[in-house]
């Protein structure tokens, strides 16, 4: 029995969910359908007049033939960035959860705080940090890690570094949430039962943090694979990701059917990968 039941009657649950359900249905599900029909439409239309549905599966053949390297790049860049985020994020989340003591709250706030500066502005600042005559490049050249005219900006390295930087907080927060729930006594117990620190970490901490790892990698990989900001600002024409192509086809070329086909493929690709991944990780309940 809840307070709202008297006012709305037995079906109060429906009344409460209805507005959100309507919004999600109307502006999430219907658009996906619309995206699908557009992807099968005749490309010879324009955004103002609209596109005629033609059942044209050839659009898919076209975009796969023309743009498959973009997909590969998207998935590879996003994959590498996700792994880097996991390593960096795990270190910081672990430190906050188990080592920060009374600085816990402060450190958590510090993780979120960079968000408050517009992410476009922050991404642009990497342009400055990685610039050809900047401190980082010159140091690396001096160390002979980079050649005389080696550069970082406008390379895949810069794009991946940007992606890693941008989505790191999305990794840290779920990781922290699941690490924080672990009773430190469990680790002590495992060491009491003769596990070495490393084994103890592996068999207790890591295992118990799997939900956070899965959640974090999803929250990082999914947006990273659709991102085009980093590739645009920090990369070169040969580091473009599928997001670049979709947005270019929509906004500059006005070729909605092909752009939609690309979107649909990206969506399906990611859904399939997520489902396989989640099933293999044994954390279906996250969905």
């Amino acid at each position: 029995m809840t307070s709202l039941q008297r006012v709305f009657g037995k079906n109060v649950g429906y009344w409460l969910i209805a507005p959100a359900a309507l919004w999600l249905g109307l502006f999430f599900l219907v658009p996906l359908l619309s995206l699908f029909t557009t992807s099968l439409s005749d490309p010879s239309g324009n955004p103002i007049a609209g596109y005629r549905f033609a059942g044209r599966f050839a659009n898919y053949v076209d975009v796969i033939a023309d743009y498959w390297p973009y997909f590969v790049r998207s998935l590879v860049y996003a994959g590498i960035a996700t792994v880097l985020c996991l390593v960096l994020g795990y270190v910081l989340a672990y430190a906050i959860a188990f080592k920060a003591g009374r600085w816990k709250t402060v450190m958590l706030v510090l993780v979120i705080a960079p968000f408050f500066t517009s992410f476009l502005v922050r991404t642009l600042s990497w342009k400055l940090i990685l610039a050809d005559n900047g401190f980082v490049v010159e140091s690396l050249q001096w160390l002979h890690v980079l050649g005389e005219d080696g550069r970082l900006l406008a390379t895949p390295f810069a794009v991946i570094a940007g992606l890693t930087y941008n989505f790191l907080p999305f990794m840290i927060l779920p990781l922290y949430a699941s690490l924080e729930k672990i009773d430190p006594q469990l680790l002590e117990a495992s060491q009491d039962l003769y596990a070495s620190p490393w084994k103890g970490f592996w068999s207790v901490t890591w295992k118990l943090s799997i939900p956070g790892v899965v959640g974090g990698t999803l929250l990082t990989f999914i947006p990273a694979s659709g991102d085009y900001i980093n590739a645009s600002l920090l990369g070169n024409p040969n580091t473009q990701m599928v997001g670049n192509k979709i947005q270019a086809l929509f906004t500059t070329a006005g070729d909605y059917p092909h752009a939609s086909a690309l979107s649909v493929i990206l969506m399906v690709l990611i859904l399939v990968m997520v489902l396989v991944y989640v099933r293999r990780a044994g954390t279906e309940e996250l969905l």
Partner: peptide
């Protein structure tokens, strides 16, 4: 619950382009 989860699992570019497709349609 699934309907709430899905938008978070959809890349922004897909969500944005599908809305655009709807608005144009």
């Amino acid at each position: 619950n699934l309907l709430i989860f899905l938008p978070m699992a959809t890349p922004e570019i897909v969500m944005g382009s599908s809305l655009l497709a709807l608005f144009v349609a």
